[in-house]
Design a protein around this nucleic acid. Structure first.
Length: 273
DNA sequence: AACTTGATGGACT
DNA sequence: GTCCATCAAGTTG
């Protein structure tokens, strides 16, 4: 009977999760949502995005945004829109729903642990907003953005695809082995750090690029959502033996979003809604 | 061994 | 259909 209780509780959580997901999703057709109020973000004393230099895309986020400590930046990323412009002019867009903070030399799980600086991880030590793209497991890429703090950065782990989904599907399929497989579901396009790199055609050539000035990739201010989404803080994924650093809650995701790569139900119990 | 993924097989709804 | 556990896949430090 405690089994029964546990089961029904589990189902209840799932229902609740789907319900919340609907609230946090953007309109399916990408129609701009009327914004009743300016979104409350920890951007500091930043000029209005509408008065940036005329040649820039109106909503591109600048150095003011990226120049904050890794944890703050990892949280601030949630909801913002990553845009990738392909050579043929196609724009791929995705709303960031999951990130991880890597804090720098003291963080035993970071590539910059102990202050290690190599040609590979140089991007981590460059100015905030610089990309650090690395090759992993012999076949994938992961995309990080340098934050304030030497050797600190934020890993982008999952996006809600907003535009260019068919191109993303093609890009993702073309990288796969058989390439004869079924069409990927929308949820499979960007739900993981290497998946989103495939979907947006991000590879090593993007390493050390500047997100505030690059012509092919940038970050745009989030359209205002229905309400401030709840953010879950959970342990990072794929951290092996990094002592105390393995369990630290440095992964952040939008609670209830169906686009997140890995959900942590235990961590969600500590999230206030 | 690594900040991952996709295919596969089994249990379950 | 979903979900979960397992494992193999290439390269780099």
């Amino acid at each position: 009977m405690s089994c029964m209780w546990r089961l029904s509780r589990k189902l209840g959580q799932k229902k609740q999760r789907l319900l919340e997901a609907e609230q946090h999703q953007s309109p399916p057709d990408g129609t701009p949502t009327p914004s009743p109020k300016e979104p409350r973000l920890a951007l500091g004393p930043q000029r209005s995005i509408y008065f940036s230099s005329p040649r820039d895309p109106p909503a591109r986020l600048g150095l003011d945004f990226f120049d904050q400590p890794a944890v703050a930046l990892a949280r601030a990323f949630l909801g913002q829109v990553l845009v990738r412009r392909l050579d043929d002019g196609t724009e791929l867009r995705g709303r960031i729903v999951e990130t991880e903070a890597y804090l720098g030399p003291e963080d035993e799980a970071a590539h910059s642990r102990g202050g290690r600086q190599t040609p590979r991880n140089r991007g981590m030590f460059m100015k905030p907003g610089t990309l650090y793209v690395y090759f992993i497991y012999g076949m994938y890429f992961c995309m990080n953005v340098s934050s304030q703090g030497d050797g600190a950065c934020v890993l982008l782990r999952a996006l809600e695809p907003l535009g260019g989904l068919e191109t993303m599907r093609q890009l993702r399929s073309s990288y796969r082995k058989g390439s004869t497989g079924r069409a990927l579901k929308d949820r499979e396009l960007c739900s993981g750090p290497s998946k989103l790199c495939q979907a947006l055609a991000i590879d090593k050539s993007f390493d050390q690029r500047d997100l505030t000035t690059d012509k092919a990739v940038w970050l745009e201010h989030s359209p205002a959502g229905p309400r401030e989404p709840a953010v879950v803080a959970a342990a990072r994924v794929g951290i092996g033996n990094a002592g105390e650093w393995t369990q630290k809650p440095l992964r952040f995701y939008i609670q209830g979003s169906p686009w997140v790569s890995v959900v942590d139900r235990i961590a969600e119990q500590n999230t206030q809604v």
